[in-house]
Design a protein around this nucleic acid. Structure first.
Lengths: 252, 252
DNA sequence: ACAAAAGTGTTTTGGGTACACCCATGT
DNA sequence: ACATGGGTGTACCCAAAACACTTTTGT
């Protein structure tokens, strides 16, 4: 370790910093529903060991970029690779690991430090596009609205991630990361409905989409559906880069 | 240091975590203008040492809550006490301290680690209420729009803070932290104008304020002004807690 | 024929925005 | 008397929201 010189006299530098971890909220879209990826852990208990669920996450290595750490840990814990991860918040409550007693008993043996500050990331994947066979056996896609609790403060992390996703979605072209390259307007509407947990009027929704010049009609139609095939559209990033307003371009 | 046991076989735990610092963006409101507090540092250079400006900030101690760290460092570096600080973002680019060469030369002797992840905070103060005599000699209130550069990535941190402030202000009663307890509608309007760096129509602004039931007319008027004294208003938090909508209650 | 989803217009309502003058006070 | 900011109403436009039926295809 390098020597520790001090340049400010009142600078009482500690030997080391607090431990840092990353936790990842991976949102997916499948069967017209918003999903999130959680991981099962066997947690000891006086009575009998229980399975508990947490977000994928672990500690960051020294000199490892936190985004790299998030990607590495995601690969290790879920099997998923090459996701684009986005830090959105920090959770630093000194008691955050101790809120649920059993969880703390479980994590304690692996900690050097009683306190772990976590940097939370979210990421978006189109579940039908990724190779679900790479998914580890102990992870599962679940509908976030059905999740009542998670280990540690992970329910809070999830809630914040959803809040941030809902905000970011309004002014960044993130919807398209959850959609296939070619998509129908109904698919897009159902995705918005899944994310905002609401419903929209079809005609009003389409009127708003028509005003987005970067959503391009392809003059192609879907196939293999048991009803009138819908027109396909795609997102044109070049047009978006030129026309976007730095406002809520994606509000519907 | 406690022993390091491992409960997950693929869990390659590092000896220590990356270094963590906090940086603070303190917004103030003075003379109808938005201000931010920056600190001067003497930075070496081949030619001659220069004064450069940075945000108040320093490393977090082991086992110190990051909000406590932010308050402590603010006191040490600016003289200000008892500010409510709010974490809003993380800056973790491995090169963030090296973007400006001289800055890195200046900070390098005090680092154990080449990389420092920083957690950024913002805080709001009414400049005319605080005791400005406690302010350290090397800090200064400046208009953020006039700041062209700061040390390291602090200009980016400032820009993000302003973006976050502008967002938070829409749905949290933060304006009142910058206003005196009793305020006129013009004072409030000018504050919004300062924060969003724009202008509003007086009548339209007042119409919107009238719709906020938690802004209470006091039936008092200002004194010591050289023109028609304006009516005074105050913010009633109890009414706000009952009536607020979890939406953009403070959009104007 | 039936099931399923695609696609399409109109009306009403409320909010946003633009705009100009008189009044009250202190100097 | 003058300078300064306080305070007020209206008209227009557009966007949001509510609402239902016909068409197309696969089975």
């Amino acid at each position: 370790m390098p020597s520790k010189k001090k340049i400010e006299s009142n600078d009482n530098v500690p030997e080391i910093s607090p431990t840092i971890s990353v936790d990842c909220v991976i949102f997916g879209y499948e069967d017209y529903r918003l999903k999130v990826l959680i991981k099962r852990e066997l947690v000891p208990s006086e009575i009998k060991p229980n399975y508990e669920w947490k977000l994928p996450g672990n500690r960051v290595r020294l000199n490892e970029d936190i985004c790299v750490a998030a990607s590495r840990i995601l690969k290790e814990q879920t099997g998923l690779e090459n996701l684009s991860v986005k830090p959105f918040s920090v959770f630093s409550d000194p008691n955050r690991l101790k809120r649920r007693e059993h969880d703390y008993e479980w994590i304690k043996p692996s900690l050097e430090d009683e306190r772990v500050i976590t940097i939370a990331f979210y990421s978006l994947v189109n579940v039908s596009v990724i190779d679900n066979s790479v998914l580890n056996e102990d992870v599962s896609w679940v509908v976030p609205y059905d999740i009542k609790e998670l280990m540690f403060d992970h329910k809070e992390v999830l809630d914040e991630a959803l809040k941030k996703l809902r905000y970011d979605l309004l002014y960044e072209p993130l919807v398209f990361e959850l959609l296939s390259e070619k998509f129908t307007l109904t698919q897009m509407q159902k995705l918005y409905e899944a994310i905002y947990n609401t419903t929209y009027d079809k005609r009003n929704f389409r009127r708003k989409i028509q005003k987005m010049p970067y959503i391009i009609p392809l003059y192609e139609i879907e196939t293999e559906v048991a009803h009138t095939p819908a027109h396909l559209f795609s997102f044109n990033r070049e047009v978006y880069e030129k026309k976007h307003t730095e406002r809520f371009d994606f509000e519907v």
